[in-house]
Amino acid sequence: MLEFISNLVAVLLTLFIFSFLYKDNPFYRFAEHLLVGVSMGYAIPLVYINAFIPFVYRPIFLEGNFWLIIPSCIGILYIFRFTRNLSWLSRYPIAFGMGIVGMGVPMSMHSSVLVQMRNAMLPIDNINTLLIFIGTVSILLYFYFSKPHKGLYGKFTNIGIWFMMVGFGASFGYTVMARISLLIGRVQFILGDFLGLIK
């Protein structure tokens, strides 16, 4: 019984959302607003149990690590975000978390630039690796803004555009595929789990 009701609710809400395809209507709006509320409400107890209890309550009140009162006070400053005169206080917790950006500079230089560079330096041993090399270099130069795209240089950077277009085509194909997969997933749910038409 419970299972049937559960599926009924899920299917109804699914249909409410699909009804938007026909036109904007109260059912869709209801479902949309419900979604916003439930998803926010869902996070609250989880954060309480998985973050507040182990990192604030337990260390301070049970283990007696009173140093942690300072960061929890900093955390409370978030709430001032919505006051008119004291909203600047909320910058403190943000600033404390933002400090890790210092790790980001060398780390992203390391893994997004240097490692990619190494991979772009592989020996050319066949036509494909040659194409990849030309493509990579021409695209890098295409995004080099200090020289106008003219003459031979302009023609070379133009190769970069074609490479990118083929690359975007691949993205395009994949995106179309992904969107359709999602729809298939939903239809499989309605036809299979609820109506039992797929076995």
């Binding site: 490692v115 990619q116 190494r118 991979n119 690359g167 691949a170 993205s171 994949y174 995106t175 595929m177 992904a178 969107r179 997969s181």
Partner: peptide
């Protein structure tokens, strides 16, 4: 990954990351 992300991940595949 979802198909949308797949094309973006190819460089990491090729580089063995």
């Amino acid at each position: 990954v979802t198909a949308v992300m797949a094309a973006d991940n190819y460089p990491y595949l090729q580089s063995g990351q």
